[in-house]
């Protein structure tokens, strides 16, 4: 059972969820390149220019660990990364659990994604603002500046660490992606977990995904927001457990 975090955080996102599955499953957690403890040198602008590169990373982990019958649990953008990975390695994935998925964030004709292209440009700009202070304080830590040990401590305590350049890149790739056409290729049972009042992936998008997936199921959660794995772990766990019991 493999858990993939979304944009903005790292595998810490799963800390309240994965322990519930460790008895019955081999649990695999990882950080996407640019997040958490991932080796920054694995970042490659060409490879990671689209979600396929991130999906290829997932497929590499699955191959490297020689995993079969993988239950892939993807949050946010990792839902689509899972869809692409399952297509790349069809024999190795058993089912998909997609939490707050969106195959396209930007509106397109009659398709409602929830955002305009301008909104996304603004997001990329605002990320610059939010990282202005980042590099200044983190650069000395990375370079092992010994006269400010409190910085190192801060670093080890910090959750959801992301490299600003790579986070910005990931944001662009994520929010300009369009994977609507890839949904039909998924031949394995797939669960869409939809939050209430999700400001990033609204309900209409979640139902769109479930309808396009040949073996898609749609489950509406009571949890609000975009991160039920943090805000409502029990409800998330029982929804996944129920789905796994049926498949």
């Amino acid at each position: 059972m493999m858990f993939a975090h979304g944009f903005g955080c790292d595998q810490d996102m799963w800390r309240y969820v994965w322990p519930a599955f460790q008895d019955r499953h081999r649990v695999v957690l990882f950080d996407h390149v640019g997040a958490g403890g991932a080796d920054p040198r694995a970042f490659d602008r060409q490879r990671h220019a689209s979600l396929r590169g991130y999906a290829e990373d997932v497929a590499s982990i699955v191959r490297e660990l020689d995993l079969r019958d993988v239950i892939f649990v993807g949050h946010s953008v990792s839902a689509m990364i899972g869809v692409l990975a399952a297509a790349a390695e069809p024999g190795r994935f058993g089912s998909l659990v997609l939490i707050g998925p969106s195959p396209r964030y930007i509106d397109d004709g009659s398709y409602v994604g929830g955002f305009s292209a301008q909104d996304i440009d603004e997001l990329l700009d605002s990320m610059d603002s939010n990282y202005v202070g980042w590099s200044g304080t983190l650069a000395p830590m990375i370079m092992g500046n010994a006269d400010r040990p409190e910085l190192g401590e801060e670093l080890t305590r910090s959750f959801c660490r992301t490299d600003p350049e790579m986070a910005r890149h990931f944001a662009r790739v994520t929010f300009t992606s369009d994977n609507r056409a890839d949904l039909a290729a998924v031949r394995i049972p797939s669960l869409v977990l939809q939050c209430s009042e999700d400001p990033i992936a609204p309900e209409i998008v979640g139902s769109f995904v479930a309808e396009r997936l040949p073996r898609g199921r749609f489950v509406q959660l009571q949890a609000t927001g975009h991160c039920p794995n943090l805000s409502a772990p029990e409800e998330t766990i029982s929804a996944i457990t129920a789905f796994l019991g049926e498949t």
């Binding site: 946010s76 955002f115 959801c160 991160c227």
Partner: peptide, 20 residues
Amino acid sequence: LTPAGRIYHETHCRPLLTLR
């Protein structure tokens, strides 16, 4: 918040608030 701010808030601030 602006739509962009909502994305940032939801993907960065709320997880951090919960975790830290």
